[in-house]
């Protein structure tokens, strides 16, 4: 959790917002630091978190979370965190012996089927976030590290959008929780499927954090710029979206944000 980003977003783990859909979008750079931020933010806030981690292994997320002062292993044991390790469940699905398979379908079932149907993944999210009577967590949170991986694994863009829509209905509307999703986007890449997903998600998001690499290329002291877009227009008032732009530098355990051109190295 980066304190400076909380200030910019006017958020605090003491009073997390409810029912919001946040889109993290990265272009020509890696926006995974935002995923780590929101993971530790919601765990601190005492929310029940379902983390669909498709890109990295559990130990990676755990070690980074430890640097930010959170233990994922402990959160898992408390039952606060449900962690889906995509890389592992993919191996289990592909190399499992036929007879070993239980009746419970794998969340990534769609990889081995010809129809790209993300229902199993949605069912996984729903069952893990539906509150039981005993637990006392605040609103549920769904976190997806890299929705683009689903496209690489052969899911159709429409199936991915359907999946997100179902999740919004259940998590945001019914359970009054939050969704945070990371996508890659690069206009130059000519990846039409991905652009379709990104553009339609942008229209539905309450908050977009768009991280971009610098147009001028690599710089040691400025790692990129972040565009914070608050979708005021979604609330059907006649107002424009609020856009703020900052630059950032990632450090070992923290990220600093500053106005454009005001990096410590330039001043």
């Amino acid at each position: 959790m980066f304190a400076e980003l909380n200030e910019l977003l006017d958020a605090s783990p003491q009073r997390p917002e409810r029912g919001k859909f946040t889109l993290l979008r990265d272009t020509r750079t890696d926006g995974s630091f935002l995923v780590h931020h929101f993971l530790s933010f919601y765990l601190r806030a005492g929310c029940k978190v379902c983390f669909v981690a498709l890109l990295q292994s559990f130990s990676h997320y755990n070690i980074v979370a430890q640097k930010l002062g959170i233990s994922l292993t402990a959160a898992k044991e408390r039952g606060q965190l449900v962690f889906l390790e995509g890389l592992k469940s993919c191996l289990d699905l592909l190399f499992a012996e036929e007879e070993e398979q239980s009746g419970h379908p794998s969340p990534l079932q769609f990889i081995s089927e010809s129809t790209s149907n993300l229902k199993a993944l949605f069912d996984f999210v729903r069952t893990s976030l539906t509150p039981a009577d005993s637990d006392s967590w605040k609103g549920p949170v769904l976190l997806v590290d890299d929705l683009s991986v689903l496209l690489s694994l052969g899911a159709a863009p429409v199936a991915v959008l359907d999946f997100i829509h179902y999740c919004r209905v259940v998590v945001c509307s019914q359970l009054k929780g939050n969704i945070v999703v990371l996508v890659h986007s690069n206009e130059d890449s000519e990846d039409e499927e991905n652009e379709l997903v990104v553009n339609s998600l942008c229209h539905h998001s309450d908050l977009i954090l768009w991280v971009e690499g610098l147009a001028t290329g690599f710089c040691k002291d400025v790692h990129g710029q972040i565009k914070i877009i608050r979708r005021v227009s979604l609330e059907l008032t006649a107002e424009q979206d609020l856009v703020q732009i900052y630059q950032y530098k990632i450090q070992d355990k923290n990220v600093t944000f500053f106005a454009r051109g005001l990096s410590a190295a330039v001043l």
Binding site: S148, S152, N186, S189, D191, E193
Partner: peptide, 10 residues
């Protein structure tokens, strides 16, 4: 180009 982009990501 989309394929190379995805390959790089993975």
């Amino acid at each position: 180009k989309a394929i190379m982009e995805r390959v790089t990501n993975l």
